[in-house]
């Protein structure tokens, strides 16, 4: 299988103005991320708030400018594209957001919201577009009659369905979902997860699912990348990473999830402290101040991703 999307050493740094006359500081939001997505595959990016998972997703779509690195989509280096070529390419990459309400224009009917991207990209005439919108609404489990309503008339789950229909409008090859089910109640969350799985097969899509919820990611993803402070600390096939986590952070993250089974014995590793600031990331391995297994090398040398066996990589000095 060929790679649809390849990120190589992506860095995104934001300058932040400090106090007056103080030198400008830099947030290292994404700090050297390399990932790839194969055709038809689902890649999960997990991590806690501020780890750079959303920024990585936005940078991959060139919705924010990266500081360093290359992005190759469907064999083309995105940096080499002119603005109008980039617009053409962006048809093939779509995004679904966490809060579907704030990503839908409250004054546009659902029909218009879904039809808009097709109009912008000059797809079909009015009646063809209307037909396609009705067809898309049915695909995502809504009725075409509901298309004349406004976003506020829908529940959270239905709005997310509208967001998915809009993302599908241009026949994309890849969809990046940024916390696509986090704002939903569990019973609705299951409906949307199932919908995402169904349309992936039907439309032959590749997904990147960005989430803080490890259980959701395990359910939909083939491969998973765990991020901490702007870096990927572990990456590999989902099953492998969940059953045999290597990085102390991945282990702690997995053990921290409350399990809905009261008879299960807990072996919880509780991390002390909070995630450090990405303005002044710790020296060496950025996880070392919270790591239960740190030793001398950890605060001096930054560990590189090392292959641990079949496609499973980990960035930790314990496994050199």
């Amino acid at each position: 299988m060929t790679n649809l999307l390849t990120l190589e050493d992506i860095k995104v740094h934001f300058p932040v103005k400090g106090k007056l006359f103080a030198p400008t500081e830099v947030v290292h939001a994404v700090d050297g991320v390399s990932l790839s997505l194969k055709k038809g595959e689902t890649l999960g990016i997990v991590g806690e708030s501020g780890c750079g998972k959303t920024t990585t997703g936005l940078a991959a779509m060139k919705l924010i400018e990266k500081t360093h690195g290359t992005i190759t989509f469907d064999g083309v280096d995105l940096d080499r594209l002119a603005a109008d070529e980039m617009r053409q390419t962006r048809q093939k990459m779509q995004m679904i957001f966490q809060d579907p309400f704030s990503s839908l224009n409250p004054r546009m009917t659902v029909n218009r919201a879904i039809g808009e991207p097709m109009k912008v990209h000059g797809m079909g005439n009015d009646s063809e577009r209307a037909d396609r919108v009705a067809w898309l609404l049915k695909k995502v489990g809504l009725s075409p009659e509901q298309g004349n309503r406004y976003p506020h008339e829908f529940s959270g789950g239905q709005r997310q369905r509208i967001g998915i229909a809009r993302a599908l409008a241009l026949n994309p090859m890849m969809i990046i979902g940024d916390e696509p089910v986090s704002a939903l109640d569990v019973s609705i969350q299951a409906q949307i997860i199932n919908l995402l799985i169904d349309i992936q097969h039907e439309f032959n899509l590749s997904y990147i699912i960005i989430s803080h919820d490890l259980a959701v990611v395990e359910h939909i993803c083939d491969r998973i990348a765990v991020m901490y402070l702007g870096k990927v600390v572990e990456e590999g096939p989902c099953h492998e990473v969940y059953t045999n986590p290597q990085h102390p952070y991945t282990k702690a993250l997995l053990s921290a999830i409350p399990h809905p089974d009261p008879t299960r014995r807990r072996h919880r590793t509780i991390l002390s402290g909070d995630v450090p600031s990405p303005i002044h990331p710790p020296s060496g391995c950025s996880f070392h101040p919270r790591c239960p297994r740190k030793f001398e090398a950890c605060d001096q040398v930054t560990p590189e991703l090392t292959v641990m066996g079949s496609a499973h990589q980990v960035a930790c000095h314990l496994y050199r």
Binding site: S187, Q191, I193, I197, E218, H219
Partner: peptide, 28 residues
């Protein structure tokens, strides 16, 4: 029961790779 079945639980994905969840149809 529906609530419990619709929660994705780590380690519950079956070996055949079937990852559809049991959903509660409709809404509150």
């Amino acid at each position: 029961k529906g609530l419990m079945n619709s929660v994705p639980v780590i380690g519950s994905k079956d070996a055949s790779g079937n990852s559809r969840l049991c959903e509660i149809p409709g809404m509150v």
